[in-house]
């Protein structure tokens, strides 16, 4: 047995989960799909006295359309998002899901687990940030809504308190002439991205960009919105030269990480192309 010993809890309701989290504080960790947490426990990169398993809490799973919002329970499996019809209302979810690990990982891995784990090179945190998803968080004190832009603090770190649980993500549903893309460069399919982008574009009747969102991953300690590049693209026709310029602008002020897999310079150069490629695909889709 590789992980250090822990006490196992399998509550069936959200109040029971947050009650346990409050009781044990930083000695407790919620166990979602376990596809990141269990390896970290096995390698003893981390250890907790208590694991609170979320897999027996039915209220945390499911996809529901509420007017212009898609509400996705935090324990909804990535495979469910990939294959399910309901999640198609938010195309970025279905575009990002197949890029996460492998099918055996996505059969267990969850949307909320990925976002709360906050790996800076992961796809789903960037999707949440790109779409300004509202994050529903429960604690013994009640429920609060957090903006994605306020959620990510740093590598694997969020604003969630010890007694708080991410329970659902609320995604705005775009309408009109819009297109989306997730693009990334990874060493192998299923690996964490060296650099990647989740983006969405809306065109008006004149083929001018009326709305655009660009979120980068693998380019800093959190997913990052390229707001200057977004502002520069609104009101313009997205021809090839313009999208080249926007790609360069999106990475211009970044300080990407440097590691054995890629230098910071590599991430910047390739990241600019990935943004251009993603936007090009999103624009093509919006035009059709």
């Amino acid at each position: 047995m590789k992980p250090a010993p822990f006490e196992y809890h399998a509550p069936e309701t959200v109040p029971d989960v947050v009650g346990l989290l409050a009781e044990y504080g930083d000695e407790a960790k919620p166990l979602a799909g376990g596809q990141s947490l269990v390896p970290m426990l096995a390698l003893r990169l981390t250890r907790f006295e208590h694991l609170v398993d979320l897999n027996r809490v039915p209220a945390l799973s499911g996809v529901e359309r509420r007017d212009d919002t898609l509400v996705v329970g935090a324990m909804t499996r990535q495979a469910t998002i990939e294959r399910g019809a309901q999640a198609q209302a938010v195309p970025l979810l279905g575009l990002a899901a197949p890029l996460i690990g492998h099918v055996q990982i996505r059969n267990r891995g969850t949307l909320g687990g990925s976002v709360a784990h906050a790996d800076p090179a992961a796809e789903m945190p960037a999707v949440a940030l790109a779409l300004d998803a509202e994050l529903e968080v429960a604690s013994p004190a009640g429920t609060r809504m957090l903006a994605s832009a306020d959620f990510f603090v740093g590598n694997w770190t969020t604003v969630l308190g010890d007694d708080e649980l991410l329970t659902a993500l609320h995604f705005p549903v775009w309408s009109g002439r819009c297109g989306f893309a997730v693009d990334e460069v990874a060493r192998r399919h299923g690996d964490f991205a060296l650099t990647g982008v989740a983006c969405g574009v809306e065109l008006d009747a004149n083929d001018t960009v009326s709305r655009v969102v660009i979120a980068l991953f693998g380019m800093g300690s959190t997913p990052l919105r390229a707001r200057a590049a977004e502002e520069a693209l609104v009101g313009r026709r997205p021809d090839a030269d313009t999208l080249d310029e926007i790609g360069r602008l999106a990475v211009a002020d970044l300080d990407p990480p440097e590691d054995i897999h890629a230098s910071a310079r590599y991430r910047s150069v390739v990241g600019a192309h990935v943004v251009t490629r993603g936007l090009t695909r999103a624009v093509q889709e919006a035009r059709t």
Binding site: A10, G34, Q35, V38, D53, N55, I105, R108
Partner: peptide
Amino acid sequence: GAAVRSCLMFAVQ
């Protein structure tokens, strides 16, 4: 019904 990695699940789960 779903293929999963049995090293990433605890038996109690």
